[in-house]
Design a binder for these strands. Structure first.
Lengths: 201, 201, 201, 201
DNA sequence: CTTTAACCGAGACGGTACGTCGTGTCTTAAC
DNA sequence: GTTAAGACACGACGTACCGTCTCGGTTAAAG
């Protein structure tokens, strides 16, 4: 499937000049490039347009706001879409998901994601986009494994599924946002296993 | 009356017109009032100045930025400064701290605090202020109780102190920011006890 | 045997799809319709295209600019092309020409013509089109009658022909553009005769 | 009276930072400078702001639109405000007024004034400003002399005053706008006298 | 009866300018 | 020396049109 989540499904034969893939790539590339030097808040649509040598209108035509552009720019980075290997059991599934999440947040995109999470707190549109493209996929996958694990007796069932997700993910995001200096190799390595102990039967 | 963190100690009789306490109160009141209707991002210094019938300069003279104003406005609200009763043991101390935190975040200020936490992700100055006025007091108190509890054998010592703080606070903030709809009465009541189980010996 | 240069420019039967008369009419109609509600400056090619259900390209293919479209739209209105009856003498000819001009400028197209005249002041292309389609025909006809009238002794010959045109037409346009409120029935009726007195022998 | 027509009369001691005369001059100078190379239509507020090293807001704060800025820029040029010498009779008064008008329109500002006259055709605000700052002063002065001249028997009284103004000024503006190539030295010299003959008793 | 060429609508493209808002700084007179 | 008022340069916002372009699809004469 090649459509991203942000594209609308469309009839195979559309009227008018087709969307320029070149411009699209140029915009996403410019966005990623600029985010290396500035925060999400500082990043302006105008700066993206200028860097991408693209009209502002072209950006507004395809994305509703800055958050959406950044979200898609992040998705299009290498390593964002790599699927997980098949796990042997639910504990391993959870562990692999946590490892992937931590690896993602530890990369230079971690800061950007934290800022998107932040932006989402003030802006409903941004909230929806962040949820659809990042949070929901993450949480859904995790909830599935947790439910299975609770059924199978791998995990304790004294917490409801949503709370388990909070218990697993909360500490990661809290550390990222509250004291990112401690978001280091040691934490990356140890947390996924520690977290499992929190919820094991 | 004690000085707030932002005030500098001053000689009792200075030259010139003294700082207007009336203006200060007016600014903080206007800030709180405006935050009822808009997000931290939407709130502008200009709006505060206009509402408080105060010059912009007066705000900039006494606070370095929007975050600082809001932080102080929040502190000045009733119920923010109430001290906790003396706990019987460290578990109770932790539980009371978590209850207080959750109660605070559940109030209409919760959203504002989430937004400040958010703003801090993009802005170093805001980060420092949020840390000094909110995060550090919270974390320090918690770390003290945890250390004591680990020494006394009340809590497991398999996690380091910082991780325990993350494990306790992370889920609360994650729920507040990722799915605030579930930040409800039920959660408020059950979480502090559940959290204790996570770290108990 | 060979086509002359003139014939080459417009061979009677060209290859390819012929120009759509339907689109042309639709464009001119839409233009006239929109000009009832907005000024020449406010009118946009995009609005015409939308109203006429026509691609912008189709307009640009056949007219060099907005002024040209409007000029042709005006010409296609009923009453623009009605020829004058044969005059008995040059004074009558001039009088009839002035009457026709005033009648035209008094109609709801008067405003549009004033605006085209205006647009022509800033835009060379527009200037050329307005001149060719409106001013030159008007002036040429008038100059002819004036020359004849001066030869025949009907008119004074103390002014050169161009100046006489200015003296005849200038007041009309000045009133239209400087104080259109006075461009009324009374003026329409009296001016042509008064004007004649100005230039009579 | 030293206030220009565009300034509002104000109490002698106002609050707040006073208007920057430097910025004002810079804006008017930049406007005049840009008008040497482009038409009124092409001139943009942004270009003025950039050239004058001034914020756009500063322009919008003091002038309602482009026309107003240009109008004031023109007024501030040397030679725009020079008063006429006292005339010996009304014919001379009219002649001097016409000479002044023609001289003004023949200068490099003539084109700009024609374009302002043009702009006024499409834009009510521009119309009002052009009228107040240019047309009305011109016409009022002329009407006064005409009325006096008609009373004194210098001028024919078969036309009403407004029509006489049209007869005097119309040809000048028509030539300027319809065939500016003929707006030359010869015309400048001869027209004022010719015009007087048109309206003499 | 297919090819070819110019047309058509739709609409995306890179741009420019719009008029507004908020920033943080500044400059007054008043207190 | 602080205050309220408010002007200042700056930069970004999101929108409207510009004139050009690129599609898929007609339409009709030429081969």
């Amino acid at each position: 499937m090649e459509n991203t989540a942000l594209e609308q499904s469309e009839s195979p034969a559309r009227k008018g000049r087709p969307r320029s893939e070149k411009s699209k790539k140029s915009i996403l590339k410019a966005t990623n490039s600029l985010l290396l030097h500035m925060s999400v808040q500082e990043l302006s649509i105008e700066a993206i347009a200028k860097k991408a040598k693209v009209g502002k209108t072209t950006i507004y035509r395809w994305w509703p706001n800055k958050t959406a552009v950044i979200m898609e720019a992040l998705s299009n980075q290498p390593g964002m879409q790599t699927p997980l290997p098949t796990p042997r059991n639910n504990a391993e599934a959870i562990q692999m998901q946590l490892e992937k999440l931590i690896r993602l947040l530890h990369s230079k995109n971690g800061e950007t994601i934290a800022q998107l999470f932040a932006e989402a707190q003030s802006d409903e549109k941004a909230q929806a986009i962040f949820e659809n493209n990042f949070l929901t996929p993450l949480i859904d996958a995790m909830e599935y494994s947790i439910e299975q694990g609770q059924k199978d007796g791998e995990f304790a069932d004294r917490y409801d599924v949503k709370s388990v997700v909070d218990i697993l993910c909360g500490p990661i995001f809290f550390r990222l946002m509250a004291h990112p200096a401690d978001f280091n190799e040691s934490f990356m390595k140890s947390y996924p296993k520690e977290a499992l102990r929190l919820i094991s039967a």
